[in-house]
Amino acid sequence: MTTEWMGYKWLSEHYDVTPVQDFQITSEIGAARRSVVTDGRTLETYPAGSRQAPTLQAHLTYALRQEGVHLEFLARLFDVLPQAELAAWLNSERTGQYARRVGFLYEWLTGRQIAGVEAVTGGNYVDAIDPETYFAATAPTRNARWRVRDN
């Protein structure tokens, strides 16, 4: 029986990207909802109704929402991710907060601008990272292209 992963682990397997550090949180589909913590790592198990669509958009959104921000892994993922696949998602979800964060993080981590994606012109500014969870700047700068506070 193979494990059906979600989030970062799914992205890792789908794009053949191995993180240097283990994921703090790993999510899978199982029979019932449960959390198991072992040596500081958490395995989250969700019932089948929580299954994500097998897409970059679904799993990266899920990862950022449920598993946190894993900059080292994202840098590795962005190095192999087809830019056209990313651009298609970002263009389909222009004002989505997770899409904007991903666009910002991609350009910040890689130093490359995503081709074929225009600047976001609507929506409130969102934090790049959650200041309640991560050490963040108290006076962030605003990235107008993505409407993200670079904190």
Rank of each mutant, 00 (worst) to 15 (best):
G116Y: 00
A53Q: 12
L74D: 05
T42Y: 02
S12L: 01
T133C: 11
E13V: 05
T55V: 05
S35A: 14
L60E: 03
A48D: 12
A84P: 04
V36I: 15
L71N: 09
L56D: 06
S12Y: 05
D127G: 13
T133R: 15
V69C: 08
D130A: 15
T141Q: 12
N143Q: 10
L64E: 07
W108Q: 14
Q21Y: 12
G96R: 07
G116C: 07
R101M: 14
R33M: 11
T38L: 13
T95D: 01
Y8I: 07
Q52W: 01
T38K: 15
E44L: 10
G116M: 10
A119G: 06
G116I: 15
T141R: 11
Y46F: 11
Q52P: 06
G123A: 15
L109F: 04
V20P: 08
A87G: 00
I114P: 00
D79C: 14
V69W: 14
L11Y: 03
G68N: 04
T138S: 11
T133S: 15
R33I: 13
S92R: 09
T3V: 11
R149C: 09
A58N: 08
D150I: 07
P19V: 00
R142E: 15
T95S: 05
D79H: 14
P131C: 11
V17T: 04
A144M: 11
S35M: 15
A115D: 09
H59N: 11
R112K: 14
E13H: 04
W10Q: 01
Y46E: 04
V17H: 01
A53F: 02
M1C: 10
A139C: 00
M1H: 13
E132I: 12
T55H: 02
G122N: 13
Q83T: 03
G96V: 06
G68D: 05
Y8D: 02
T55F: 03
V20T: 09
I114V: 15
R65L: 12
A32Y: 14
A48I: 11
G49I: 12
E118C: 12
Y125R: 03
A115L: 11
G116W: 08
S12D: 01
V126Y: 14
Y106S: 09
P82H: 04
V69G: 02
R33Q: 14
A63N: 00
A58E: 05
V126L: 11
P47Y: 12
H14L: 02
Q57K: 02
G103Q: 06
W108C: 09
A144C: 11
T45V: 12
G96I: 06
M6V: 07
P82Q: 00
W108H: 10
A115V: 11
W108G: 06
Y15V: 01
Q52G: 02
F23S: 02
Y98P: 05
D16I: 01
G40H: 12
I129E: 00
Y62H: 02
Y125W: 12
L60I: 07
